[in-house]
Design a protein around this nucleic acid. Structure first.
Lengths: 88, 88
DNA sequence: CATTTAAATCATTATATTCTAATAAATATA
DNA sequence: TATATTTATTAGAATATAATGATTTAAATG
C-alpha cells in the first residue's frame, strides 16, 4: 500500500535530524525532562521542545508529567534499532 | 561525534520519501533501469532520475551502464533492513 | 552522419523544515 | 495570591526539498 510507505517515510523523517538522533541517544540512557536535554545539547528551549514534539507525534517518544517537569522516554525501540543499524 | 549524526541523518533523509521507498522495494526484486522504474511507478522521468540520484549519492544504490540503459541496484542492504524493521 | 532513445541536469515554482524570539499556559513556590 | 519556573505554542525568516517542463548529454541505430 502506498499509504504504508507514506507512514514509513514520516517515521524516517522524524529520525532524520542530528539533534533528534542525539536526543534519542540521551533518552536511551534514561528518561529526561526538556531542561535537562537543553543543558546537555546546549540548544534553545523552544527548539528542543519542538524536536521532542516531532518524535512524540510519531509515537517514538512518550511523555509523563512529574513535578513541574515533562519527562520524555523512548516508547518505540525500533528507532534505536535503526540507529544501531546505521552505526554497526 | 556530531558529524556522525549528520551523516546518519542524511542517510535517513534519503530513505524518507514514499517514492524512494517504493524504488527500493522494486530494486530489491532485481536491478532496473530508469525507464523500467518509470513504467512501474508512473512518474516523470526527471523525477525518478532525481530520486535515484539522491539514493545513489548516499551510497544506497549503485549504477552500471548496460546497452543504452542505466541499471540501478541496491548497494547498501542496511536500507532494506531498516525498511524491514518498519514493516515488522 | 543524422536521428532516435535513455538518462541527467537545470530552472522554476510550490511546499516543507528549521531555527529564533516572543508569548502563552500550566504548575510550583514564596 | 503573586511570582517564578518549566514547557508548549506561535509567528516569521531562512533554507531545503520536491515536482514539473525544458534542455542537454550520451549512446545506439538507421
Amino acid at each position: 500500500m502506498d499509504q504504508d510507505r507514506t507512514v514509513q517515510a514520516e517515521y524516517l523523517k522524524a529520525l532524520a535530524h542530528p539533534t533528534r538522533i542525539q536526543i534519542l541517544e540521551l533518552l536511551n540512557e534514561e528518561g529526561r525532562c526538556v531542561s535537562n536535554i537543553g543543558e546537555k545539547l546546549n540548544l534553545k528551549q523552544s527548539n528542543i521542545s519542538q524536536h521532542l514534539g516531532i518524535l512524540r507525534s510519531r509515537g517514538i517518544l512518550s511523555l509523563r508529567r512529574e513535578g513541574g517537569h515533562s519527562i520524555y522516554c523512548i516508547r518505540d525501540t525500533r528507532a534505536l534499532e535503526i540507529l544501531g543499524l546505521l552505526r554497526g
